[in-house]
Design a protein around this nucleic acid. Structure first.
Lengths: 212, 212
DNA sequence: ATTTGTCGAGCGAATATTGCAGGATTCCTT
DNA sequence: AAGGAATCCTGCAATATTCGCTCGACAAAT
């Protein structure tokens, strides 16, 4: 990515436009115009518009998954619940750092195309696996399967809500810094998960961390 | 809508395609082809592709808001918490009945265009108002503003999660009937809200309803 | 007879992509 | 270190295709 300023500028501009108007809603001409590069440069670096998309998505997800794996690796010795919290923190933090592209991906994922299906098996399956494993380590023996699925779905929902409700986000949360939002939001999730933990395992959750 | 079979078929086919490929990803030719009508029919009935979209969206939202208002009207005398539950039930039920179009709208809403902005002020503002009013009636005096915003955001998140996470929905929830999903999911929300209610108002929630 | 609906052909504009020419840069050999 | 060759990059114009939409003819219904 860093290698070439033109390449980077194209990806950055494209991401911004995709976020605003969607993939099909933006033309390569407009990308080139806004990035102040020639149209041919896009074909040159990425072969096609689709290639540009795939490049950006790969870059996003490989960085993302690497970060999650690092987080889990560094928290190998900590207890399951704490490990889960740190994973959640990393997820929200990364999504917030790449806010626009996160929104865009989340939207594009709800389409039905061969590209989306490929993305699901290569990246989303892994993301889900990491999260579910960390989740299971906490709740495996304390919940019925049916219940567990709903709680897990609720957790996943909370991890994407800020990136699909973004018309209301500014209004609801207020417009403070990203870092502050991450802290507040993660501690909101934590509060909820602590309750779930207490309710289903009848143990008090750990108290030794505070993200605020 | 009912008035004309061709008109209806166009809207239905278009909704289906918009759901799969998005608005910009669908061409009028393909709509016409799949609906087995002539391309001109679309211009004839809706003036333009955009007109077709606006017609479908208006139809969807007007039916939706009417249903929510009816629900609230019929529950005028019931206590606030119960009223909120019934509103939630109506919301999920309607969204489930119009599953594909709900997904589509939810996705299109995260774009930035004059159309989306118009949609926000005409429909979403009202939807939010109804929900927030019912929510406020329960929690107004029991929560700090900051906390209330997060909980409300979480509720809104739960109302859209099944329609943005739909790649996982089948896997997570299993593939039983829509009606059954509505009941289960609403009672899951209810369980969560009961906890929130208990925690912040220090009163036991009502026990007289059971959606399962 | 007038309105209403359906049809295929086709228009102009916009789309992604490519060909080619020339400039810039890098790399290799002497 | 120098010069030349190969490669990388950019710019403009043109490509074929697809887009939304319209026209006028014709059929059906009122």
């Amino acid at each position: 990515m860093k290698e070439n300023p033109v390449k980077r500028k194209i990806v950055k501009t494209a991401s911004n436009l995709f976020f605003q108007k969607g993939f099909h809603g933006t033309s390569v001409r407009e990308i080139a115009k806004r990035a102040k590069v020639n149209v041919s440069a896009i074909s040159y670096y990425f072969n096609s518009k689709q290639g540009l998309l795939e490049y950006a998505v790969s870059y996003y997800y490989e960085q993302y998954l690497r970060k999650l794996e690092e987080t889990l690796y560094n928290a190998q010795q900590t207890e399951p619940l704490e490990r889960l919290y740190e994973l959640i923190f990393s997820i929200i933090q990364y999504k917030q750092e790449n806010y626009q592209f996160t929104c865009f991906i989340q939207r594009e994922l709800s389409m039905d195309s061969v590209f989306v299906r490929e993305m699901v098996v290569t990246y989303l399956a892994k993301e889900n696996h990491l999260l579910e494993e960390a989740f299971d380590a906490v709740f495996r023996d304390h919940m019925k399967l049916h219940k567990k699925r709903y709680i897990f779905m609720q957790l996943k929902g909370m991890l994407i809500t800020p990136y699909v409700l973004h018309h209301w986000k500014d209004f609801v949360i207020g417009s403070y810094s990203s870092d502050l939002f991450v802290k507040h939001y993660v501690s909101h999730i934590k509060e909820w998960l602590d309750f779930v933990f207490e309710k289903y395992t009848s143990q008090p959750p750990s108290k030794n961390t505070n993200y605020i």
